[in-house]
Design a protein around this nucleic acid. Structure first.
Length: 433
RNA sequence: GGCAAGUUACCCAAGUGGCCAAAGGGAUCUGACUGUAAAUCAGCCGUCUACGACUUCGUGAGUUCGAAUCUCGCACUUGCCA
C-alpha cells in the first residue's frame, strides 16, 4: 500500500538541463557506456530501459532501493521502465566476490519472486504513456534447451572475456574458486538484455557498479547478436564514509519489507546517518531538489547538532518506502522514546503505541530482566544479557539495571508495560500481564 | 584418474599430543566523551542451573591416561600432472 502513494509527489529537479545532469549531480553514475551518447539518448524521445532484481532473499534491501529510485527518476524523465524479476537468474546466483552461493530451492525462489514483484511495483507508475512493466526472465529461459543455449548464445561469448570479469577473476584468484554455474551467470544476464531488446526495444540497463561485468555482458551480446549498440549505467556502491558496508545494522541488512525491518527501525537507520554521509544519501535516496539539499548541507556544516539533514532524510526515505502513516508512527515513537521528559509523564496511550513499533514481548512480572532481554532480541543469550547488565548497558524505564537477578516487575509504568533499553539507543517493549 | 596442500569461533588468522574455550587482527556489542554523529580510549566477544559444568577446531571412526593437534575413511576447496 505505501510507496505508491508517494509517486504523485515525486519529480525530478527542473533546474538541471536534463536528467543526465541530475543523475550525475546525485552521484548515481559510477560507470557507464559512452556518456555523451547516453546523455543524448536520455534527453531525446522516450526509451525503454530495464533493471533486474534477483530473488536471493524474501525482500529487497537498501542496495535495491538505489536502483528502484533511479528507475523512477528515469520514468519521471519520460522513459519506460521494465522491472525484471530474476526467476531464472535467482536460481543460479551471481558470483559474490568472496564465496560460492548456496543454491536455493526452486519453490522458495518462486515464492520470493512474488514478494519482490510486489515490492518493485510500489516504486513505479503503471499508468500513462510510459507505464512500467514487470517481466520475469524465467519466462524465456525456462523453455530454452541446453543446446539452444550453447549454439545461439554461447557462440557469442569468448572465454577470455568472461574470465576477465572482476566477479569471476576475483574468485579464480581466491582459494574458493568458482563453479561453472556461477561462471555462467553473466551469460544468463546477457541473454535477458537481448530478449528485452527484441521484445520491447529496450536499450539501457541499469544496475550496481559491482554488476558492471554483467551489464556489459548484455551490451556485448546485443551488439554481436543484433548488431545494435545499447547502453548500461552502473550506480556507485553505497558505502559509509569509513568504507564499511552500508545497510548492515546489528549484522542484519536493512530490508524494505516492514515485516523484516520495521518502519521504526528503518526510520532510525536513516536518522543515525553520519554527518559525512548524510548529504550523499539525500541525493541518492530522496527526490528533494538541489536547492533544498544544498540548504541542508549548509545546516550540517553550521549547526550539525540539530541534525536537520538526518531528520529530513529519515522522513523522506521512510515515507517513500513505507508511506506517510507508518512514517508518522515511527516519528511519534521516536519522539516518545527519545524525548527529554520522564517516561512516566508520557501519555500511556502514546507510549504503548510507540512500544508496539519496537521489538516487544509479553511476559509476567516475575520474569527476569535477563530473560526478557533475550525474548525481545536485544541479546541473543542469557550470557550476553548478563554481560550487558554487568557492563551497565541495560535500562528498564530509563533506570540502570544493576542486579543480574532483577525482575521485570521491579519497575513498571502505568498501563502495565516497560521500556527496555540496551545501550544508548536499542529499545524494546515489555508488556506485563 | 594421479600427486600435493588445505578445511579453526561472524570474517581473516595463529596453534602441530596436556599449561586450549583455543594467540592476534577486523566487525558487532557495552562504557566514557557526545548531537540517537564521527574520531578516540577502555571493556566484552561459545553455552549454561556460572569461582564450576557442558559443547566446539569440515565429517565419521580409531590410537592415547589425555587429541584442534597423531592414524584411517569420507566430503568439500585449491594447485600441478594426465
Amino acid at each position: 500500500m505505501p510507496a505508491s502513494e508517494s509517486l504523485n509527489t515525486q519529480t525530478n529537479d527542473s533546474s538541471f538541463d536534463d536528467i543526465w545532469e541530475e543523475l550525475a549531480w546525485r552521484g548515481l553514475v559510477a560507470v557507464s557506456t559512452d556518456a555523451s551518447e547516453l546523455k543524448g539518448l536520455l534527453a531525446g524521445p522516450p526509451i525503454t530501459f530495464y533493471c533486474g532484481f534477483d530473488p536471493t532473499a524474501p525482500s529487497l534491501h537498501l542496495g535495491n532501493l538505489v536502483q528502484l529510485l533511479l528507475m523512477r527518476r528515469l520514468q519521471l524523465a519520460g522513459h519506460r521502465p521494465l522491472g525484471l524479476l530474476g526467476g531464472s537468474t535467482g536460481l543460479i546466483g551471481d558470483p559474490k566476490p568472496t564465496a560460492e552461493r548456496t543454491l536455493n530451492d526452486a519453490a522458495v525462489v518462486a515464492e520470493w519472486v512474488g514478494y519482490l514483484q510486489h515490492q518493485v511495483s510500489k516504486f513505479l507508475s503503471f499508468d500513462g504513456e510510459n507505464a512500467a512493466r514487470l517481466v520475469n526472465n524465467l519466462d524465456w529461459t525456462a523453455r530454452m534447451s541446453a543446446l539452444d543455449f550453447l549454439r545461439d548464445i554461447g557462440k557469442h561469448y569468448r572465454i577470455g572475456t568472461m574470465l576477465k570479469k572482476d566477479a569471476v577473476s576475483a574468485r579464480l584468484n581466491s582459494d574458493e574458486g568458482i563453479s561453472y554455474t556461477e561462471f555462467s551467470y553473466q551469460i544468463l544476464q546477457g541473454l535477458d538484455f537481448r530478449q528485452l531488446y527484441v521484445d520491447y526495444g529496450c536499450v539501457l540497463q541499469t544496475g550496481g557498479s559491482d554488476q558492471w561485468g554483467n551489464l556489459t555482458s548484455g551490451v556485448d551480446l546485443v551488439r554481436r547478436a543484433e548488431g545494435v549498440g545499447v547502453h548500461a549505467i552502473g550506480t556507485p556502491l553505497i558505502t559509509n564514509s569509513d568504507g564499511r558496508k552500508f545497510g548492515k545494522s546489528e549484522g542484519n541488512a536493512v530490508w524494505l519489507d516492514p515485516a523484516l525491518t520495521s518502519p521504526y527501525a528503518f526510520y532510525q537507520f536513516w536518522l543515525n546517518a553520519d554527518d559525512a554521509d548524510v548529504i550523499g544519501r539525500l541525493k541518492v535516496f530522496t527526490f528533494l531538489s538541489r536547492k533544498e539539499i544544498e540548504r541542508l548541507a549548509d545546516a550540517v556544516a553550521h549547526e550539525p547538532f540539530k541534525r536537520q539533514a538526518q531528520r529530513t532524510l529519515a522522513l523522506e526515505v521512510t515515507t517513500v518506502v513505507h508511506g506517510r502513516e507508518a512514517t508518522a508512527a515511527a516519528i511519534a515513537a521516536t519522539g516518545a522514546l527519545f524525548g527529554q521528559g520522564e517516561l512516566a509523564d508520557l501519555d500511556p496511550q502514546t507510549l504503548e503505541s510507540a512500544l508496539r513499533e519496537l521489538p516487544n514481548t509479553t511476559t509476567i512480572p516475575d520474569a527476569t530482566v535477563m530473560q526478557v532481554l533475550v525474548d525481545t532480541g536485544l541479546t541473543s543469550s542469557l550470557g550476553e544479557s548478563r554481560r550487558a547488565v554487568e557492563q551497565g548497558g541495560v535500562y528498564l524505564n530509563n533506570i540502570k539495571v544493576v542486579d543480574a537477578a532483577a525482575l521485570v516487575g521491579d519497575s513498571m509504568l502505568p498501563g502495565g508495560f516497560s521500556v527496555l533499553r540496551r545501550g544508548k539507543k536499542t529499545l524494546a517493549g515489555v508488556f506485563v500481564e
